[in-house]
């Protein structure tokens, strides 16, 4: 079996250049590639475009890359939780493309699946539809959206093997499996890395064919944005 293992996050992101087009998995702070973000912070690069559903918070996740002014543009569906993001956006230092969440997911999926465009009802009649082709199917209007593909997709999984096969846990799955399919180079960080053959093929979510680099991450903080408890 082809071995996709690299030593650590630093090695995995070592060749990401300035102005690269990246995808990063995660929903809020759930299932984000913490180790790769930390390794990117050590790199002297900027001008990044990042496709990610959200933009982290001020002092965690993608927010850390924003603080270091490494990001030129975010392509996201919801970016509410970040004061530095707002400051950079209002001052014109940062561009943002806001995209309906389902459209964002499908554009990524389409990119990985070799489908250059598709029609969706989301956004018809709104400003999202401006400049886009509209077409009627069976009496209802749809608008055309194009695929998204990345130079590097950076994803986080729960378990992985040396062949790049991945298993996700809970709602930390979110955008990770589809982004894994849409990168020219896909980097996967996992909490537990095992030799190929140890994961049950029936249980694998992402086939290793999509993954070029894999390593076992460490010191996961898994910060919680809204700790909500049932009082007993």
């Amino acid at each position: 079996m082809i071995n996709k293992t690299v030593k650590d996050a630093r090695e995995a992101v070592a060749d990401i250049p300035s102005n690269a087009f990246l995808m990063m998995g995660g929903f809020g702070l759930c299932g984000i590639p913490e180790n790769c973000i930390a390794a990117l912070l050590e790199r002297d690069i900027n001008g990044l475009t990042i496709v990610s559903n959200n933009a982290g918070v001020d002092d965690f996740g993608i927010g850390l890359l924003l603080q270091k002014r490494m990001v030129k543009k975010m392509i996201s569906s919801y970016v509410g939780e970040n004061a530095e993001f707002e400051r950079q956006l209002l001052s014109g230092e940062l561009e943002v493309d806001l995209i309906p969440q389902g459209t964002l997911a499908e554009r990524v999926r389409a990119g990985g699946a070799g489908i250059p465009a598709f029609f969706t009802p989301a956004g018809v009649g709104t400003e999202v539809a401006e400049g886009k082709e509209l077409r009627e199917f069976d009496g209802k209007l749809y608008l055309m959206e194009k695929w998204l593909r990345a130079d590097f997709s950076i994803v986080k999984a729960w378990k992985g093997d040396t062949a790049g096969n991945l298993i996700f846990k809970g709602t930390a799955r979110n955008f990770n499996p589809i982004m894994a399919t849409a990168g020219k180079i896909t980097i996967a960080e996992v909490e537990e890395l095992v030799p190929a053959g140890e994961l049950d093929p029936n249980e694998i979510h992402t086939p290793g064919i999509y993954v070029q680099r894999i390593f076992q991450g460490k010191n996961y903080e898994k910060r919680i944005e809204q700790r909500t408890i049932t009082k007993s």
Partner: peptide, 28 residues
Amino acid sequence: VDPDLINAGKQTITMVPGSVLFNSAESF
């Protein structure tokens, strides 16, 4: 509390018996 289990409002949640998890493209 499990940081890998949140709702769309980013609140920590639980799953009922018979639940299923999936990716964002499948969800939409």
